[in-house]
Each structure stands twice: as structure tokens, then as C-alpha cells.
Amino acid sequence: MAFITADHRHADHQSFGQRLAAAFTRFMERQSRQEEIARLEAKTDAQLAAMGLTRDGIVRHVFRDRFYL
């Protein structure tokens, strides 16, 4: 008779708690960026121009540390 066990707690696998914490962190980062986008979209074109931004560049500006567009 053979017994087979599966241990899913290897170092290269994250625990459920770690995955949940990572998902929560990503959610909070997205939320804060959405608020920044809304704050910039509420500015006038003149205010954006003074910051060196255009309306089309708001999202690119907010996510500039994540994506190179």
C-alpha cells in the first residue's frame, strides 16, 4: 500500500494569507491612484498645463512608475 501526501507549503508557494495580503495591497494602490486621477481630472486645462500635463496624459502620469508608455 502506498501513501501519497501533498505539502503545498513549499518556500516557492505563497500561503493563502500572503496572497490575500498581496491582493489587498494591490487593491489599495489602485484605489489611491484612482483618487489621484480624479483629483487631476478635476483641474482646469490651465492648471494641468502649469504642471506640464494634458488631459490625455493624466493616466500615463499617474502610472509612470509602473508602465513606460
Rank of each mutant, 00 (worst) to 15 (best):
R64P: 00
I4P: 00
G17T: 06
A23K: 15
F67K: 11
A23N: 14
G52L: 09
T54C: 00
I37H: 01
R33L: 07
V59H: 08
A38G: 06
T25L: 10
E29V: 04
Q34S: 08
R39Q: 10
T5I: 11
A21W: 05
G52E: 07
L40Y: 01
F16I: 10
G57I: 04
K43H: 06
L69Y: 13
A49Y: 04
E35Y: 08
H13C: 10
I58W: 03
E36T: 11
R33M: 12
Y68T: 09
G52A: 08
E41Y: 01
R39W: 02
F16P: 08
V62L: 09
H10I: 01
R39K: 13
R66G: 00
R30G: 12
D12Q: 07
A50H: 02
L69T: 05
M51F: 01
T54Q: 02
T25S: 10
S32Q: 15
D56P: 06
E35S: 11
S15N: 11
A22K: 15
L48P: 07
A2T: 06
Q34F: 06
E29H: 06
E29K: 13
I58M: 02
Q18F: 07
F27Y: 14
F67E: 14
T25M: 05
G17M: 11
E29R: 11
Q47I: 06
G57V: 01
Q31D: 07
R30Q: 10
D56A: 12
I58R: 00
I58E: 03
H61C: 02
L69E: 13
T44W: 02
V62H: 09
A49P: 01
L40G: 05
A21V: 05
L48D: 03
V59T: 14
D45A: 09
A21N: 13
S32H: 11
Q18L: 09
A38Y: 02
E41W: 00
L48V: 03
F27W: 07
L20S: 13
A22N: 15
E41P: 03
G52R: 07
E36L: 10
A38N: 14
D45R: 05
H61P: 00
D45V: 07
R26N: 11
D45Y: 00
I37D: 06
R33F: 01
R9G: 12
E29Y: 04
D45T: 11
K43A: 03
R19Y: 08
I4C: 05
H13T: 13
L53A: 11
S15R: 14
F3W: 09
F27D: 06
F27Q: 12
G57T: 05
A50W: 02
A42W: 05
A2H: 08
L53Y: 04
R9E: 14
V59M: 01
A46S: 08
F27H: 14
R64S: 14
G52F: 10
R19K: 15
D65I: 00
Q34N: 15
Q34P: 00
A50T: 07
R39S: 08
M28W: 05
D7F: 05
Y68Q: 02
R66S: 04
F27V: 05
S32R: 15
R66F: 07
T25H: 12
I4T: 13
D65Q: 01
R66L: 09
D12V: 13
E36I: 07
M1F: 05
L69S: 02
H10L: 12
R64N: 08
A49C: 05
Q14L: 14
M51L: 15
A2F: 02
F3Q: 14
